[in-house]
Simulated assay, not measured.
Amino acid sequence: MKHQRRAVLHSVVAACLAAFCVSAPAEPSLLQPEEAFRVSARRVEPRVVEIDYIIASGYHLYRDRFSFKTDNPAVSVAGVELPPPLENFDKAMGQTMRYYAGRVTVRVRLAGANQTTKLVATAQGCAAVFGVCYPPMTTAFNVPAFDGRRG
């Protein structure tokens, strides 16, 4: 009888542990940079390209770590428009950091010849939930010469 109770008790404990393991939330894992920061670009005006960053929850891009350039000396970056950033004091850095979370759209104004070029965008972000920062992420976009007949 004593052995039967012990066997039943072990079965109940095993069942409870199994139920807990099934219902316990999985630990989040660190995303690859291209998953954490999805990026796309589109021309919105003859000389303006918008670069859209979709930022995964728990991640952010630093406002001061964006840079843009072209690979064509006849076409240059004339200006960059960024929306107002979020701000937070970072104890590890000892300063207030400006960043974007969720989504940010950057408008890049081009100047120079109406020629095909590559627009090279660089951004850097971190996984706040892990306290891990990624190396700068560079993405190149083909920007064809503007054809005034297209909208």
Rank of each mutant, 00 (worst) to 15 (best):
C126P: 10
V143I: 14
T122W: 01
P135T: 13
L119Y: 04
G102Q: 09
F141W: 11
T116N: 12
K118E: 04
C133T: 11
R103V: 01
V80E: 02
P136C: 12
V77G: 06
G94T: 06
A111G: 09
T117M: 07
A78E: 00
R107W: 02
A123S: 13
Q115N: 10
T122E: 14
T116Y: 00
P85C: 05
P84D: 11
F89I: 07
A113D: 12
V129C: 07
T116F: 00
M93Q: 13
F146K: 09
G131R: 11
T122D: 04
T105M: 15
A121C: 15
A128N: 05
A101H: 03
R107L: 12
Y100H: 12
K91G: 02
Y99S: 04
T96M: 07
L86N: 04
A74E: 14
A101F: 01
A145Y: 05
T105Q: 15
T138Q: 14
D71F: 03
N88F: 07
C126T: 04
R107M: 09
V80R: 05
K118Q: 11
K118D: 03
T105V: 15
G125P: 00
F146Q: 09
R109Q: 02
K118V: 00
C126L: 06
Y100G: 03
C133A: 14
T117C: 13
M93C: 05
C133L: 13
R107Q: 12
L86I: 00
T117N: 08
A145N: 07
A123D: 05
V104W: 08
V80P: 02
A111Q: 07
P136Q: 11
Y100P: 04
P73V: 10
G94N: 12
E87V: 03
A101G: 09
A74Y: 12
A121S: 15
A111R: 12
V75M: 05
F89Q: 05
